[in-house]
């Protein structure tokens, strides 16, 4: 019985002494930190995606508190979250411009020819260093998922050898844009629904040799809506600088002969082989 009591007293005594020591040291060596930084960090999404250009959320919070960056620079926060930060600090929220990433390529395994069998490291950067990769098109998505592995929000799905971005998950941090060796991922205004899913600047015959869904630069879309599309070389792109942006109606009006012009929703459904979509067609 005595042994037990002794043990309890000893343990409790040690704990008490150490607790006091820790308390003293905590006071002595306290690091002064700005409570506002902690507050802003708390209000940020905490994804540490680096889309703002700083090392992470707490780094961004420091930059906001010191006035180097406006709160709106955070690509992930919604406008309400941004204004909450601005209110908490009593500063201007800054102009917010939401972007989302899009993979401008529709060449999945069935649509685009593979010129060689590749069996090296399953990574786009590595593959592009071996004779430019196995894909017939030198400009399209290589489909090895380097971007999908890097996306901090899990917004990229690899479907049938093609990276497809889920718009509802994408925040436009630009991580994938930096990773892609083919530069096929672009940041576009968040409300852009329609894209030309082709990245190849080659002439139409060269593209058609390797890909069924390449933009052949026929200008049909531009004729239907001159302000909404621009032709760059042998390829059409959506004029993202112009508002209003093209919609599903414009896609229908254009009647793209190869199916490179699509709305994001439709593109996802095609790649997913949505039975409903096939039935409609």
């Amino acid at each position: 019985m005595n042994t037990i009591i002794l043990a309890i007293i000893l343990m409790a005594g040690t704990g008490l002494v150490l607790g006091v020591v820790i308390g003293i040291f905590a006071k002595l060596f306290r690091v002064e930190s700005d409570p506002r930084v902690d507050l802003v960090t708390e209000l940020l999404p905490g994804a540490n995606c680096g889309g703002c250009g700083t090392a992470g959320c707490s780094d961004f919070a420091k930059a906001v508190v010191s006035g180097q960056l406006p709160p709106s620079k955070c690509p992930v926060s919604s406008s309400e979250q941004v204004s909450a930060i601005a209110r908490a600090l009593g500063i201007e929220a800054g102009e917010s411009f939401k972007q989302k990433a899009v993979v401008l390529c529709g060449g999945d395994r069935e649509q685009t020819m593979r010129l060689a069998s590749y069996n090296g490291v399953a990574d786009c950067v590595s593959a592009s260093l071996v004779a430019g990769g196995p894909k017939g098109c030198s400009y399209g998505c290589l489909g090895m998922g380097s971007c999908a592995r890097k996306c901090p929000f899990g917004a990229i799905e690899m479907i049938n050898g093609l990276a497809v971005i889920h718009r509802e998950l994408c925040v436009g941090c630009g991580t994938c844009v930096a990773v892609c060796p083919r530069n096929v991922i672009k940041l576009v205004p968040a409300d852009a629904e329609v894209h030309v899913y082709c990245n190849s600047p080659l002439k139409a015959p060269a593209k058609r040799q390797v890909c069924k869904v390449a933009c052949i630069g026929c200008r049909k879309c531009q004729k239907a809506a001159p302000d909404k599309f621009i032709i760059e070389g042998f390829k059409a792109t959506v004029n993202y600088a112009n508002t209003p942006l093209p919609t599903q109606e414009d896609v229908q009006a254009a009647g793209c002969p190869t199916g490179a012009l699509l709305s994001a929703e439709e593109h996802l459904r095609i790649e997913k082989h949505d039975p409903e979509w096939s039935a409609e067609k």
Binding site: G120, V121, D123, V125, S126, L129, V130
Partner: peptide, 13 residues
């Protein structure tokens, strides 16, 4: 192991 491919990638990066 595809060591050379790894090296080439690292050098490029």
């Amino acid at each position: 192991r595809p060591l050379v491919q790894h090296m080439r990638r690292a050098k490029a990066e």
